[in-house]
């Protein structure tokens, strides 16, 4: 099932007197239950594409449809709610809230979406336990290892059962084994929740988990598999 469709997505930045086409007419469809991996050199535009697909940046041209809704037609004010409803984000540096426990970090997006505290607490516990962190629920991020932090951030991204999970270099700060484990976890999440997973990465070690692989160069997307 198609979770997200992007047609002719373009982002042009003005740089002095010249225009830079960071993303140039990208067409891509993300399928639920599949892992899509975009690789490419630094400056190729893959992170910008991630911003655009996740509603963090406005397009210069093109359109993005998520679950039948055209994101490009939404006003700026409506974008946070659209992100909350449709997307889960996993960040390179985990970006957990330092003063909140693992469980509270996972509760945040649920409570932003209006889930009652008791329910969000239970679900956060279930998600973290499912990711092997049942013993770490009330730990602050500073007490967690890199792999554990990344699993908390994945649990947070899954909290509202998003249609699309967007991950920016999710294995960059992890060692080889942990990187592969986390990549496998994304595959498991896609299969078990039906969410479409899109990762952008330099990390060639995680290619195995991708159902579809793209290469980004000079703002253009090429299909690899």
């Amino acid at each position: 099932m198609e979770a997200l469709r992007a047609d002719g997505v373009t982002k042009v930045y003005a740089n002095g007197g010249t225009e830079v086409r960071a993303v140039d007419g990208v067409d891509i469809a993300l399928q639920g239950g599949e892992v899509t991996l975009i690789m490419g050199p630094s400056g190729s535009g893959k992170t910008t594409l991630l911003f655009l697909l996740g509603g963090l940046l406005r397009l210069t041209a093109g359109r993005i449809v998520v679950s039948g809704k055209d994101l490009t037609l939404l006003r700026e004010r409506a974008m946070p709610a659209a992100r909350l409803e449709n997307f889960g984000f996993v960040f390179q540096d985990f970006n957990l809230l330092a003063n909140l426990t693992a469980r509270e970090n996972v509760q945040v997006p649920m409570e932003l979406a209006g889930v009652a505290p008791a329910k969000s607490r239970n679900r956060a516990g279930t998600l973290l336990t499912g990711l092997g962190l049942g013993e770490r629920l009330d730990y602050l991020p500073e007490k967690l290892s890199g792999g554990e932090k990344q699993r908390v951030s994945i649990a947070r991204a899954l909290a509202n059962t998003p249609r699309v999970l967007l991950a920016d270099e999710p294995t960059a700060n992890l060692d080889s084994k942990l990187g592969k484990d986390v990549a496998a976890l994304f595959q498991h999440v896609a299969r078990s929740t039906g969410a479409a997973v899109l990762m952008v990465s330099h990390d060639a070690r995680i290619v195995d988990v991708a159902d579809r692989l793209f290469l980004m160069e000079d703002g253009r997307l090429q299909t690899m598999t």
Binding site: P80, L84, E85, F89, F91, L97, A98, V108, P109
Partner: peptide, 18 residues
């Protein structure tokens, strides 16, 4: 000090009002 964390909250879907 927590500007980055507020950025995370924004990215997740927190409005400026919140």
């Amino acid at each position: 000090e927590r500007a980055r964390e507020y950025g995370v909250l924004k990215a997740i879907g927190t409005s400026n009002r919140r």
